[in-house]
């Protein structure tokens, strides 16, 4: 029984990744909350004169402003997919060569055995994202693009700025604003469900593996045990 454990501190998440992460979390909270209010405004003003209030307009303004923040955070992340360290690069999320794909598939099977079914005890120790997580983040990035395109398409007829106007072609392609709104709304639920699972799993890994998972998204570093469990599976 180990009484003391030696840890290796490894710097995994560089600044742009962490910046992206927390700016995204903040803007997404605002976007999902204001978005659902836009979709179904609560009746907390039921009388009065229109000139005295602007709350719904304000909620919409917050949504559009947060939309821009969400976009630019993502732009930084995409840049870092090409400029960042090995854990940040695009091929983590999209293993497109046969070798990478095979390695990724092996990783996924291991995650399923260890973390989901829990029929294998050995913890999966990888430095960056585990294979399953990578695939999910790859999907999140795609839905992020989708949501941004749908959002700015909805925004196009409301704005005179050149940027939203670039997305005006999306509306006819999707068969009208009504369809775009439904898709935008559905993707919102994707993010909500993802965030719930994601936060749960962050806590799960932090508790089970004790590698400082959660704080790693703040400080950038994870702590790897050097004894029991060792550096198996390190990629």
């Amino acid at each position: 029984m180990a009484t003391t454990t030696a840890f290796e501190r490894a710097y995994i998440w560089e600044r742009p990744v962490r910046l992206y992460h927390w700016v995204t979390v903040a803007s997404l909270l605002v976007l999902a909350a204001t978005g659902l209010v836009i979709g179904r405004p609560p009746a907390f003003l039921t009388a009065g004169d229109a000139s005295a209030s602007q709350w719904f307009g304000t909620v919409r303004f917050l949504h559009f402003a947060a939309g821009y923040v969400f976009l630019f955070a993502f732009v930084i992340r995409v840049y870092w997919m090409f400029a960042g360290n090995e854990y940040a690069r695009w091929h983590n999320f999209y293993p497109l060569t046969p070798t990478r794909f095979r390695r990724w598939l092996g990783g996924v099977l291991q995650v399923i055995k260890v973390d989901v079914l829990q029929i294998q005890k050995k913890p999966v120790q990888v430095r960056g994202h585990n294979a399953m997580a990578s695939a999910i983040y790859g999907m999140v990035f795609l839905v992020t693009v989708f949501q941004i395109v749908m959002g700015f398409a909805l925004y196009a007829p409301m704005s005179d700025a050149w940027f939203p106007r670039l997305f005006a072609w999306v509306v006819p392609m999707m068969g009208g604003d009504a369809n775009v709104r439904i898709w935008h709304h559905l993707a919102t639920w994707f993010f909500i469900v993802f965030a719930a699972i994601h936060v749960y799993l962050s806590v799960f890994h932090d508790v089970v593996e004790a590698e400082g998972e959660i704080s790693s998204m703040v400080s950038g570093s994870k702590y790897f045990h050097q004894d029991a469990g060792g550096r198996r599976g390190v990629k």
Binding site: A6, K121, G212, Y223, G229
Partner: peptide, 24 residues
């Protein structure tokens, strides 16, 4: 999943998970 994890974790008591990690 959380319940399952809790049950499994008791099984692996003695493994490195239960060691109080002291970062150094």
């Amino acid at each position: 999943h959380a319940v399952l994890t809790f049950v499994r974790k008791r099984d692996v008591k003695g493994g490195h998970e239960s060691a109080e990690p002291k970062p150094q």
